[in-house]
Amino acid sequence: MRSERCVQALNGGLHEAFERRDDVYLIGEDLLDPYGGAFKVSQGLSDRWPERVITTPISEASLFGVAAGMALRGYRPVLEIMFGDFIALGFDQIINGISKFREMYDDQVTLPLVVRTPMGGRRGYGPTHSQSLEKLLMGVPNIRVVAASEYHDLRAMTHAAIDDDEPVFLIENKLMYGRPNRRPENGYIDELSVREGSGTYPALTLSGNDFGEAAATIVTYGGMLPIAVEAATELILEHEVFCEIVVLGELLPLDLAPILESVGRTGALITAEEGTLTAGIGAEITAQVTEAAWGQLRRPVRRVAANDGVIPSAPNLENMMLPGAGEVRDAVLALDPAAV
């Protein structure tokens, strides 16, 4: 079966959700057809449901609150934020409204809203249109941060986010949109065997040797997935080193079980993310794994991430700043895997 592209899967999921529920609305900038959103994830929705697609002024600081108000009154708004960088404008609403209303009002209300937004660089968009800012959401209680990847069932993920009674930040990725949305066939994607975790936003664990002996667990998500796969493939072919890759579906609350399961087999943890290193997703994963499974770690944890700086526009400079397959490979080799 030929896979649809990720952008088609996300778009298809939205169309299905609009068909299935009449309380779903889409809010955001430049949504109307024929434009259909800057990355075309929203294409065709306004033609079919003109009254449920609301194209807005450039007002992100308020749009998060508008979505919250709709959710408080029984709707399920999906807010499209054109570039993930723009969530910075919404942080008051995210922190002092969206994440607070249910608990501070003593569970008298729910906030079933979805914020969809693409993160990630490698397209030359420069410092303010390339960031991976999901790490900034990690310290916010009472929200979910869900990471789409090209191996996840993106239609199902869209449905789950819309049906969720908690606020969901669905983190997409710009490069992912144009790539095929691969799903395991008979437990495999290409040469990698795939185990799917449980839960609403399941993690995927990948192995190049059918979960035989492996030197390390690489925990990653979103746009770093193909880079981790490239690194793992090179490690097999060039160094005869096998790794497991855990591709998280849910970053917050952190889905720790599949990580611990894999680390229990490999004894070594590497985190790989595209956001900047300091206080990143890897830092949180590292803390939780060392608290829960210190005795199983046979090597120091290593974090692969972007340098703490801006993302330059020029391609060479951007590549130097963002983590690539080479950095992931080197982090594994630095564990001295032959000695493990």
């Binding site: 749009l63 609150g65 959710a71 609403q93 607070k100």
Partner: peptide, 26 residues
């Protein structure tokens, strides 16, 4: 930070207006 029935309040200046706008839209 009160909520009862159709009444809501919050403590951030200005941040209540967007939420009220969303409520009016709903």
């Amino acid at each position: 930070h009160l909520c009862r029935g159709n009444f809501y309040s919050n403590g951030i200046q200005g941040s209540i207006v967007p939420v009220a706008t969303g409520i009016a839209l709903a």
